[in-house]
């Protein structure tokens, strides 16, 4: 099976499907309300000439939406996480823990921190699903 091109619709859908398949996600996301915007800074040297924006929305253990979006949409979500492409790539490959990345300032979080901490296991499960995808990155 062909690899999924990162930032494509297929890649977004595959991630959403993976989360839906997870038995852990509905347990640890139960009660969650809120959308998340992921802002990925451009990196022309890594074959990423433009900034990318990803929109993710969960509600009470269910996946409502995972799609590419525009800047305005991503930046007007309940939680905004932004950072360099290389950091996002490390997270998506399981090479960098997302919580550690935020603590070390490699990814920036805007939004209600206590809420994220309360649902940290759910957050980690979504990343686990992302890492499980057979992804092809722009600079691969």
């Amino acid at each position: 099976m062909a690899k999924l091109k990162v930032f494509s619709d297929e890649w977004c859908n595959a991630w959403a499907d993976k989360i839906r398949e997870s038995k852990e996600f509905p347990i640890h996301n139960k009660g969650w309300e809120g959308d998340i915007g992921c802002c990925i800074s451009k990196d022309p040297k890594a074959n990423l000439p433009e900034d990318k924006y990803l929109y993710v929305n969960f509600f009470d253990g269910k996946v409502l939406d995972v799609r590419m979006a525009d800047k305005e949409t991503a930046e007007n979500t309940k939680f905004v996480i932004s950072g360099e492409y290389i950091r996002w790539k490390q997270v998506a490959r399981g090479e960098l823990d997302a919580v550690k990345a935020m603590m070390q300032g490699k990814l920036k979080l805007k939004g209600n921190l206590p809420y994220v901490v309360k649902y940290v296991k759910g957050v980690q499960e979504t990343i686990k699903c992302l890492v499980a995808l057979d992804s092809e990155f722009p600079d691969d």
């Binding site: 935020m102 300032g105 920036k108 979080l109 921190l113 206590p114 901490v117």
Partner: peptide
Amino acid sequence: SLMSRTFHELGTAA
């Protein structure tokens, strides 16, 4: 620092 924010908003209990 997000760590600083964590300590302030949630204390060591985070």
